[in-house]
């Protein structure tokens, strides 16, 4: 048993100070989004206003509701991309962790090397290549590159080697199970929690991505939220009347991710070197 320790006021207040700093812009946008156009520039910051519903209907009316289009696009890019990335990475990570085969080290190093290539070095030629295939400015242009995630493959390999005992695979083989059956019946269920973590990280990465859709897309009907809000800011920079829309849009764009955060707490494991996985 550990004995009760006194409350450390210094560490506690330092942490609360950090928490305050991190929450500050979120609280600000929460209150600013409730202000009407006039209140935004006149009333005190951090005091709620009366314009929330006005702002929401203005935003929904802006260019026939294109904001909700962006929201749906983002959900499609992040949800679809993360789902496919999770499957591709888990299968690859499982193969790298549980099989010995010629070229294993080379394949792993090469795939992981993808983390290190600056995104712009890839994004420009990716755009040119997809344009040659007639896929630039389509949903595929954002979805397909998002499926490859070296970081997810790296995590999947850690999870597979930690979660799946070799003995279980051997026993399955002795019982005559095929390799694909082992993947379905043994590997996937045991990697389950790790796959949820991979999905979440990739979901956030795609949701937050700006460079790739910014380069790939020209038609604003296909924009995700990040690029949409950016164009709204560019349009609104000279018209403070649009500030309300940008602020309300910014608030709405972070609500889904914050909800995902608070509900999926236990899956946000960031043990990069697999330290806390019990084997």
């Amino acid at each position: 048993m550990r004995k009760q320790r006194p409350i450390g006021w210094l560490p506690t207040s330092l942490l609360l100070l950090g928490a305050f700093y991190c929450l500050l812009p979120v609280i600000w946008v929460l209150t600013a989004a409730t202000k009407s156009r006039a209140e935004l520039f006149t009333s005190q910051a951090f005091t709620p206003g009366t314009g929330l519903f006005g702002n929401l209907s203005d935003l929904s009316a802006y260019r026939d509701g294109i904001f909700w289009n962006w929201m749906a696009n983002t959900a499609l890019y992040a949800g679809g991309g993360a789902l496919l990335a999770t499957v591709v990475s888990s299968v690859a990570g499982y193969a790298l962790a549980k099989y010995q085969f010629p070229g294993r080290g080379l394949i792993f190093t090469t795939l992981i090397g993808g983390i290190l290539v600056p995104s712009v070095v890839l994004a420009v030629p990716q755009y040119l290549l997809l344009a040659k295939l007639g896929l630039a400015d389509t949903y595929w242009a954002v979805l397909l590159p998002s499926i490859l995630s070296p970081y997810s493959i790296y995590l999947a390999r850690i999870y597979a080697s930690a979660a799946i005992p070799d003995a279980l695979l051997e026993a399955g083989r002795i019982d005559g199970a095929s390799e694909t059956r082992l993947l379905r019946v043994v590997a996937f269920p045991m990697m389950g929690p790790g796959m949820v973590t991979i999905f979440l990280f990739q979901f956030v990465a795609i949701w937050n991505n700006f460079l790739l859709p910014y380069i790939m897309l020209a038609d604003d009907g296909k924009f995700p939220l990040t690029v949409g809000l950016y164009t709204l800011l560019v349009t609104g920079a000279n018209q403070p009347a649009l500030y309300n829309l940008v602020i309300t849009g910014a608030l709405l764009s972070i609500i889904p991710l914050i909800a995902l955060f608070l509900t999926m707490q236990r899956y946000w494991r960031t043990d990069l070197s697999g330290g806390s996985v019990k084997s």
């Binding site: 942490l15 956030v204 700006f210 690029v227």
Partner: peptide
């Protein structure tokens, strides 16, 4: 504090 300090990770750099 842990949740509050981790929260900005959920906010896209653009936002």
């Amino acid at each position: 504090s842990r949740i509050a300090i981790f929260l900005p990770y959920a906010v896209p750099a653009v936002v």
